[in-house]
Write a protein that binds this DNA or RNA. Structure first.
Lengths: 177, 177
DNA sequence: GATTCGATCGGAGGGATAGTTA
DNA sequence: TCTAACTATCCCTCCGATCGAA
């Protein structure tokens, strides 16, 4: 058991979320957090700072025993999402956070005519007739969105392959899109 | 400041969500929780057990210094919701939880022909031509849904008035729908 | 011919607005 | 008849399967 300090209002908020008598703080928080990855998809799309090649060089990849995508896949947060586009966005965000530099590099994958990723939505719009660009949450990138599910899976597969993830993880990620 | 105990794994999970050096547990949790109310709206609609008059009698209202709707209104979770129907559902859920018996009683409000609330979706469907009943998450009730925003506000106002909330709170709740 | 890619268009959900009733 | 309250049609947006093009 660990102990943490909380502001009073937050403490009362959490306490108010008790559903069963005798529930522990961990129980309540687990329930509340279980699904929280969800919301950022609907929040006002916050764009991260545009990346320059220089800054990309200096950004260290996340180093930890479990990568962000692995955590995301394991968390079940993706299963909470009904629409494949939401699962897609969540995956892209996690991939970006795991290694912004590699992600940026991998971002160069494209279709026959359409550009799939860009920091400039206009570049995406210009590359096809109805690409429907959308921002990838918490990221400086935009993606095209007028695609069927298998293409979304495909984009994730190409992206992850380019970033150097192994087969198994790629397959798992694609399976959840 | 309050202190709570957490399971180790939850503690480490929360710590791993640090975005800024020196962030406090409250900062991190606020970020994670801010939006978590959201997810249940998209989850498979889980119906609570149907209520019988007998069980309603025995359910005690939530007793605490801050009611659930107050906590909800203060939490900013509603502002995360883009669609008014989602804010509406969140409010209804909170009202139910604050006092199931009074909520059940208040549930008798209705329109000229349409029945607004029922534990049986068919009753709602039968009361109008396109009522679009939907379950209120974590609740045994269904609501009609084919309404404009002002009617939703109206329904919340009537419901809360019947439950005995004061003017100011009602106004605030309606304002956020 | 087979496969990959693009983007049209059908379907669903939300809710403003037009229509109805008291 | 005029208005206020209520209903539900119907438009708009978003998603993504399907079909056409390369």
């Amino acid at each position: 058991m660990k102990t943490i300090e909380l502001d009073d209002d937050l403490y009362f908020y959490i306490a108010s979320q008790t559903r069963h008598i005798g529930e522990s703080a961990s129980d309540i928080l687990r329930r509340l957090l279980e699904q929280s990855a969800h919301a950022k998809l609907n929040a006002a799309p916050r764009q991260a700072e545009p990346l320059t090649p220089a800054t990309v060089q200096t950004m260290a990849p996340v180093t930890q025993d479990k990568s962000g995508i692995q955590a995301l896949l394991a968390s079940g947060a993706l299963q909470q999402e009904e629409k494949s586009i939401n699962r897609f966005m969540l995956l892209l965000g996690a991939l970006y956070r795991d290694d912004p530099a590699k992600f940026t590099q991998a971002t160069e994958i494209k279709g026959r005519k359409r550009v799939y990723f860009s920091q400039d939505p206009e570049a995406l719009r210009a590359s096809g007739s109805t690409t429907k660009p959308k921002p990838v949450p918490d990221t400086p990138f935009w993606v095209i969105t007028n695609t069927n599910t298998s293409r979304k899976q495909n984009m994730v597969a190409q992206l992850m392959a380019s970033m150097g993830y192994d087969e198994a993880l790629i397959a798992e990620a694609c399976g959840t899109v």
